[in-house]
Design a protein around this nucleic acid. Sequence first.
DNA 1: CGAAAAACATTCCTAGTAGGAACATGACTA
DNA 2: TAGTCATGTTCCTACTAGGAATGTTTTTCG
Lengths: 184, 184
Amino acid sequence: MSMAKPELSTTAYALLGLLVFDRENPEGMTGYELKQRADFTLRYYWVSPAMSQIYTELRKLADAGLAETAPSDGPARYRVTGLGEEQLQIWLFHGEVGFPILKHPVALRLLMGRLSTPERLGTMLEAHLDDLAARRADLQGVRDMLGDEHQVRYAAMVADWGLAYYDSEASIVTGLRERLDGMD
Amino acid sequence: MSMAKPELSTTAYALLGLLVFDRENPEGMTGYELKQRADFTLRYYWVSPAMSQIYTELRKLADAGLAETAPSDGPARYRVTGLGEEQLQIWLFHGEVGFPILKHPVALRLLMGRLSTPERLGTMLEAHLDDLAARRADLQGVRDMLGDEHQVRYAAMVADWGLAYYDSEASIVTGLRERLDGMD
DNA sequence: CGAAAAACATTCCTAGTAGGAACATGACTA
DNA sequence: TAGTCATGTTCCTACTAGGAATGTTTTTCG
């Protein structure tokens, strides 16, 4: 019962949240399974932690009594504890929220290309169009799996936002957007 | 002239882009100044690198011949070279683009709160409303400084997106959104 | 069936990043 | 004229990204 207040990271709470999603399952989840879940959900709102990090965060959660590993001879399966559910709620409502971070390679290029001519910007978007389409397909897979609405919103945002920025250059962008839409 | 192809990072190119923005100024920029620029622009599309990183990236850019430091007795002032401008263009059009990353603390909480009742979600948004408003004010400063349209789009997106997700819970969210809009 | 491949599970490693403290130096200001 | 504030650069530490390495178990399929 050493309450040293180990200052859990946002990633730790995010993983705790994934355990809560799964709390109906008495078996609990292995780090490996958590990684897969994270790749499909957490990734779009926060990050999908490295495998190594998942295991260290799980150990921290267990040390803090927020998760426990069902005693078994096989792989370690973690599940959330009652304390863990409580603490997650406290964190949701009272934990500190930082500034949102967007790292958007295409948007960055749009910014950096500001001094170029509109034509060149159009060319750049062309060059990355396949990437944008690939991302969209990727997210479509998520949509199919989760059947949820928020992923779709995010997909649309990520894929369209860069283009929307150059709406004013309508003649260039409209064609690109049509091509992108045609890929749905 | 050792063309060892040092594989510059995205952050390096982003800084190079900032130097290009400033290329009218024959003085060049110090690392310190770049940090300030980054805080006001790069931050919203990529990251604002740590001061230490800025200086190391500048050294790498100089080593690669993409930037140079005007010989002077005072602080080191970097400016982009002709090669640097070329390379930036090449990177813009042909460099690899990664997956966009969004780390959104409020959105994460919305995701994690999915199992809660709508009322509790409303309470959570309430709790973070001041944060959202503060972010907005922050971005307003950017808008004033750059006089540009894209920052506004981003501000709106970041501030509203989490709320939009719960549009279906209209009775709860509408009030919050009005409060947020009232802060403009 | 038996070998090869794939999935599962965990640990380990390395370069890079965040985030700022520490340390200088001037410069303005009460 | 000491004190704080802006400039400019380096240093340090913990954490993170990203995946390689290493086993084990389960599927696949010739």
